[in-house]
Design a protein around this nucleic acid. Structure first.
Lengths: 347, 347
DNA sequence: ATAGGCACTGACAACGCTGTCTGTCATCGG
DNA sequence: CCGATGACAGACAGCGTTGTCAGTGCCTAT
């Protein structure tokens, strides 16, 4: 039993060559093919032979080399590549979790990487994954150029974009209803009497930021309060820029009485900037976040489910792997406004 | 240029065989070895030849097969395996981010998986990663049995355990000062006059839960308030069990006036159970979390840095990969109490 | 003129595994 | 007693790369 072999400062003994099927075969006194049969649970091996082989495997600590196996078999490597913006962001870690979950059910491992909103990095990661011959690719696009993926897609690697669409290829995409979300946010605020509603969004070259801005604009028009350029501040934002912006918005001749935040980070920045200040504008944030309901006032948000997004994208990917070759689909997941208080403050 | 090739419903054209170096060689009119030289930036290729090869690569959308490369070269696969409890938990996603960051600097990809606290799953993941011949393994142990890793460690795969120690192998480990943390929490509460301090921890077979319980106990003794069995409730906990426990603690003849929460999830459950209730016990939570400072009252925590943990473990792993074969090390990272208000409530 | 060196290129084997095909028994029906 | 059958085992090739070694010219120094 391996379990009983002497354990100690293992770091001491360096680089014992890894056992191969050949080593196992020699020790068990069988051919390498028989070892392969045992390892792969193929039928046609005499129980007593199999037992000898298993003993040899255990004794040598053999573990089959998947590189070799994948190379030989040519088909699936049993891996899925996931390129996202930042695993550290709770939203994306929720997505990751969902992807992992489904991949697991389908016997796949997930390789992931964060692009940090850098198109070059996104490309580097995606192509690296392709070199590893992942079975499929899930990408949260950082850039607008995705033609680099065309050879990979042609070679049969399914690609699903999530959260944002691809720049210049036609492919499966799973999005959330960004426009509908901010329309609803503005409508909600207007219904509570607000006429000066500001929008703090991320950098406008980011798809979701731009869509949400469009929704904000449309919401303003629909609510009959008009669209005012001076009430909009697009990012990139950090804590201090958000604070400055809020001050500006509140010290206008006609101050903003309500704010729509373009994503979870901006919402948090706003909350921090507002902490302790008496004069709080009403607030609706895009993206739900943990503890939003426990703040005072509880934060009203446009909620959408990270795991639903991850699940939808992964399901789509596996459908492709299962042979579905219908035209590329675009799935738009609904969002919902969760009123909690911060958006129900009267003007 | 690949970039200009017709793009369309790519899903239509299935399974074009992937180009190999052989295909590239044939197209460029050179030998396969020359292609290999170009792809690997090896010297000794005439610029004009290289150009022809690169053109062929571009035309065919060739991307070298890393399975084959790794098999042939036998050395590094350029991957690191990361087994954690749940990527969805902000603490672990912080760890993941840090690991990824450092791996990236060292030219490695991260393959990760969540064990969900299931030892079998942990083992499955770790061994799967070994089959993929990861260069090293980072593991947040779910179980207490790790001798299954001995053959892998012998074969030269460095393993670093993080957040919790391994069960029965001697290996590098990075922990946080769990005992010191809860000692400090209790000391802090006692200093504010509390004598009935409760502890809500995770399942006691989890190392960190047990350590924190020990720290709690020691803190009580040191503070001279004694250790009372009835003030301790170990998990697993969910929202409703926490609520029930709190009610029990508050309706005792001598009610608990303060609570120490064993981890971030339990803290959140407590906050939710307490929401809106007038009679709030003082609270100190283990693990910092976003927005803790914005709650009312702001939540006092024992903070420790997820990214510091990830970084320390990964640094250690790379040191091993760089040839450091000193005896296994155990690193204990400091924690610090961040007073914010919830722990400063007077009894 | 010739040896030696340099710049460039290619043939070939092997990494560890699995698919295909072939071989060797023992057993069974007629 | 013979051929057919089935259960089991092995030989061999090849997946796509790269390391080793062996050319082939051409140029320079003798």
């Amino acid at each position: 039993m391996t379990t009983l072999s002497p354990i100690g400062p293992v770091a001491g003994q360096r680089k014992v060559r890894r056992a191969t099927m050949n080593d196992v075969a020699r020790l068990a006194g069988v051919s390498i093919k028989t070892v392969s049969r045992v390892v792969n649970d193929e039928p046609g091996v005499h129980p007593s032979t199999a037992e000898r082989v298993l003993a040899a495997i255990d004794q040598l600590g053999f573990r089959r080399n998947l590189s070799a196996r994948n190379l030989r078999r040519g088909s699936s490597t049993g891996t899925i590549g996931l390129v996202l913006e930042d695993v550290g962001n709770p939203f994306y870690s929720g997505v990751t979790r969902a992807v992992e979950e489904i991949a697991r059910l389908r016997g796949r491992q997930v390789i992931s990487g964060s692009s940090d909103e850098d198109p070059g990095r996104e490309r580097e990661l995606a192509l690296e994954f392709c070199s590893r011959r992942v079975d499929g690719l899930l990408i949260v696009p950082a850039g607008l150029q995705h033609s680099y993926l065309v050879p990979e897609m042609r070679a049969g690697t399914p690609v699903v974009f999530l959260d944002r669409p691809a720049g210049d290829v036609v492919a499966d995409t799973v999005l959330v209803d960004n426009i509908g979300g901010t329309v609803e946010a503005v409508t909600h605020l207007a219904a509570h009497g607000h006429r000066r509603i500001a929008f703090l969004g991320d950098a406008p070259d980011i798809f979701t930021a731009n869509e949400r801005l469009r929704g904000y604009r449309e919401g303003c028009v629909r609510a009959g309060i008009g669209y005012h350029e001076e009430l909009v501040a697009m990012g990139p934002h950090d804590e201090s820029s958000v604070a400055t912006t809020l001050q500006r918005l509140q010290s206008m001749r006609e101050p903003a009485t309500a704010v729509v935040a373009g994503n979870n980070r901006i919402t948090v920045h706003i909350l921090r900037a507002l902490a302790g200040s008496a004069e709080r504008p009403a607030l609706v944030g895009f993206d739900d976040f943990e503890l939003a309901d426990l703040l005072s006032p509880p934060v009203t948000v446009i909620a959408h489910d990270a795991s639903a997004l991850g699940k939808a994208a992964t399901d789509l990917l596996f459908a492709r792997l299962d042979g579905d070759n219908s035209p590329p689909r675009r799935v738009v997941l609904p969002v919902r406004l969760v009123p909690r208080g911060s958006g129900e403050v009267h003007a």
